[in-house]
Design a protein around this nucleic acid. Structure first.
Lengths: 202, 202
DNA sequence: CTGCGAATTTGCAACCTATGCATAAAAGCA
DNA sequence: TGCTTTTATGCATAGGTTGCAAATTCGCAG
């Protein structure tokens, strides 16, 4: 928070962010154009792209941070810690960080979750980000679990993320609260860790 | 294959398809515009959209058919068949159908696989299609496995698909052959069925 | 306070995908 | 040949995105 310049820049960024989030929440994602956002933030449309790489990016700001947290969790594997426990710890760390670094007073995560079930474009973006993180997580896993081959590591991460995302989506679609979605995510992890075979004998 | 009309329509469609696939393979997906494809097929750009809903759709023609095959496999659950076995059967049925109904002499699947690791837009499309299929597969699972709750069913499908996709991607990125990718997919299924916990004790 | 250099903002043009609408071209049929 | 139904095309438009250059603003030194 240095000079006037930085402050003004931060203010512009925040104005764009708030305008976008508000408009997305009010009219939906597709119904909001970049021009609308810029107008609401009182800047030229072109300026929007000086702050955000794309319209979608506004909703996925913390993606990098989340990946960092996950990689950190993996790197911090405790001696002899089973894979399932490590990944569960990773998930909880991610949830915690998600609650913290919400750049806005109003949380971005619930809105994103809501919009992701409604707007295909956003679902696609979220899935893409997830998919792009997976190889890096898998590589990190290979490092702390010597003897784990790359394909199995990839499968592990994919299974974990897939179960997590799918279970969360079901809960979200059933109109569950934020806590319901979280609980569903944990259940998804359980299924992935214990294996689908475990579902045959409840 | 009736009159002149149907034949000509089929020829136009095929011309567009072949042009698109050829150009995608030659220059890449992003570098090929719809106008290019239309020009190569010797029709007006506008005509492309009379045959395909979008540029991406050219590469995902069999998506509907694949889902049908998977739903069929689930519906054909044998008495007492464990979940893991059913899903493995489902996967094999899908692979078989994929090899059959390739609309072209040159297979679409390998190209799609190759492009999906290279072009984010296509990865997103593939993931979206997969994600949209999941709830229907989960619902089908619930029907043949009474006692399976929706969230667990969703988790099961997500875990399965996630592991499959991620493992396949790893193999694809490592420059594996089509068979390598297939083998990796099977390995992914194994991991999902037995659970991540099983990776701790090899 | 003045002016210079750097960062920021903006306008403009362009490209691409996609859609709606109206019209032209073609094919089937009487 | 003429009429009807498809099919193909052209035109206009919307919206996201980028490159480029001009204009504006800011920070700082003189």
């Amino acid at each position: 928070m240095e000079g006037h310049r930085e402050r003004k820049k931060a203010r512009t960024r925040r104005a764009l962010l708030e305008a976008a989030v508000r408009l997305f929440a009010e009219r939906g994602y597709e119904q909001t154009t970049v021009a609308d956002i810029a107008a609401a933030a009182d800047v030229a449309p072109r300026t929007f792209f000086a702050y955000f790489a794309s319209k979608e990016d506004v909703l996925f700001l913390q993606a990098g941070e989340r990946e960092r947290v996950m990689l950190e969790a993996i790197a911090g594997r405790r001696p002899g810690e089973p894979l399932g426990e490590l990944l569960s710890r990773m998930f909880e760390a991610m949830v915690r960080s998600l609650a913290e670094d919400d750049e806005l007073g109003f949380a971005l995560s619930p809105l994103r979750a809501r919009l992701m079930v409604a707007e295909p474009a956003l679902r696609a973006r979220g899935l893409t980000l997830m998919m792009e993180t997976q190889p890096r997580l898998a590589r990190a896993l290979c490092e702390v679990y010597p003897g784990l081959d790359p394909v199995s590591a990839g499968a592990a991460v994919g299974s974990f993320m897939g179960a997590l995302a799918a279970a969360g989506m079901v809960a979200q679609e059933q109109g569950g609260s934020e806590d319901d979605v979280l609980a569903a995510g944990r259940r998804g992890i359980e299924v992935a860790v214990n294996g689908l075979a475990s579902l045959d004998r409840p």
